[in-house]
């Protein structure tokens, strides 16, 4: 462990840590970016398939928030 912190090697260790952190952040951003674009495409396709104001609307789910007798909040979903 101490050999990693010696004057000659410490700078390489610091660089490796900085690079690892950046690679981790980059991979994370890349994955979120891919998923976000896929979701956006999906929504776009849905919008084109069922334009607003026309008869065959896509299934809609509505969420109703109610309280139970004990006061614990619950959510019930229903399909229209």
């Amino acid at each position: 462990m101490n050999s990693l912190l010696e004057a000659g090697t410490a700078i390489y260790v610091a660089m490796a840590v900085a690079l690892s952190v950046w690679i981790g952040i980059f991979v994370y951003l890349w994955r979120i970016d891919t998923q976000a674009r896929a979701l956006k495409r999906e929504l776009q396709r849905e919008r084109e398939q069922w334009p607003r104001g026309e008869g065959d609307a896509p299934p809609r789910a509505s969420v109703t928030r109610v309280s139970q007798a004990e006061g614990e909040p619950v959510e019930r979903s229903s399909r229209e």
Partner: peptide, 14 residues
């Protein structure tokens, strides 16, 4: 961007 910033990290140290 990924490669560029990785390059900066290397240049910063070496």
């Amino acid at each position: 961007i990924g490669v560029w910033i990785a390059g900066i990290a290397v240049a910063m140290f070496l």
